[in-house]
């Protein structure tokens, strides 16, 4: 990152960095929301999907030298399979689900994925080549990496796909129906079990994409899952849990706040900024910034 003089350039630079980080939080938050909507579960392994995506992509592109596009598709499929396995093997068989039990099960899965990632990829962080050039572009005095533009574009693309999927396809509408009222959806002939599995698959896929696109910039390692998950959850709560468009806005907002905090307050406490915001939102307005206070009273937090 290059600092030219003038606060405007600084602000612009922080803004770019913030949106870049925020895009990842937004995607993690979308993943949280999909599973939350179909099951009411907060998946503590959400951050691990991101790590898995990033590390798999590293291996496919760097060790096996596959093309970016091909490796991208393979990685997403791989993590989707991991997501489906998680649902089939650990969520589906639970006959008497209590909140505490489900929380601990998803924590167990996160520990397993983290442990497996450490065994396969070691403890170091991994470099991955950028999608295109690494030559920074000039943007009104601030610099922007082509990879950052890729991140923006892919987030935008995901949002469009998300809107189309949930509003205009039958499967998407069925998933929404399940989110609103599972029993009613089942009576209408929707296979709710299948929808749960699908939500894990989609959630894992979106996590993988987030991991893939951020890895060239942050250099992925096995232990990043918890922090990514926490911040993504922060974005999900800030946007109102279950509300994915809210999550996108909140994720980007969280990223920007974090970037400015790191720039103007202290970079050592950068990671804490998003978490402090998370706590404040949880304590003061658990329905998020877009949730109505009416809905808040009726919902259990």
């Amino acid at each position: 990152m290059s600092y030219s003089d003038g606060t405007f350039v600084d602000v612009l630079q922080f803004l770019i960095m913030g949106i870049q980080r925020g895009s990842i939080y937004a995607m993690v938050a979308m993943g949280f929301n999909m599973i939350y909507n179909s099951t009411g579960i907060i998946n503590f392994a959400q951050g691990e999907f991101v790590v898995l995506g990033g590390l798999m992509m590293v291996s496919l592109t760097m060790a096996f030298n596959l093309s970016i596009v091909f490796a991208f598709i393979l990685t997403v499929l791989f993590v989707i399979v991991a997501g489906i396995l998680m649902e089939r093997l650990t969520i589906n068989p639970v006959k008497e689900p209590t909140v505490l039990r489900l929380i601990i099960i998803t924590i167990a899965v996160s520990i397993i994925i983290k442990g497996a990632a450490m065994c396969f990829w070691g403890k170091g962080s991994h470099y991955m080549r950028h999608f295109s050039s690494t030559e920074p572009l000039d943007f009104y005095g601030a610099t922007i990496l082509p990879q950052t533009l890729w991140i923006f574009a892919i987030l935008l693309f995901l949002v469009v796909v998300y809107v189309i999927f949930f509003n205009y396809t039958m499967t998407g509408k069925c998933m929404r129906a399940c989110a609103i009222n599972r029993d009613a959806a089942r009576l209408a002939g929707i296979n709710d079990r299948k929808m749960v599995m699908l939500s894990f698959a989609l959630s894992a896929g979106i996590g993988a994409i987030a991991g893939i696109i951020i890895t060239p910039i942050i250099q992925m390692d096995y232990a990043r899952g918890a922090m990514l998950g926490l911040k993504g959850f922060g974005a999900a709560v800030l946007g109102g849990l279950g509300n994915s468009m809210g999550a996108v806005v909140a994720g980007v907002l969280l990223g920007i706040l974090e970037a400015f905090g790191a720039g103007y307050i202290s970079s050592h406490y950068m990671d804490a900024i998003a978490l402090v915001i998370l706590l404040f939102v949880l304590f003061i307005r658990p329905s998020g910034i877009f949730g109505s206070s009416e809905a808040m009273r009726l919902k259990e937090f």
Binding site: I41, L230, L275, L278, L279
Partner: peptide
């Protein structure tokens, strides 16, 4: 807070 929210708050 209850359940998941409490878990996340304490984790944070």
């Amino acid at each position: 807070l209850k359940g998941h929210y409490l878990a996340m708050a304490t984790l944070g």
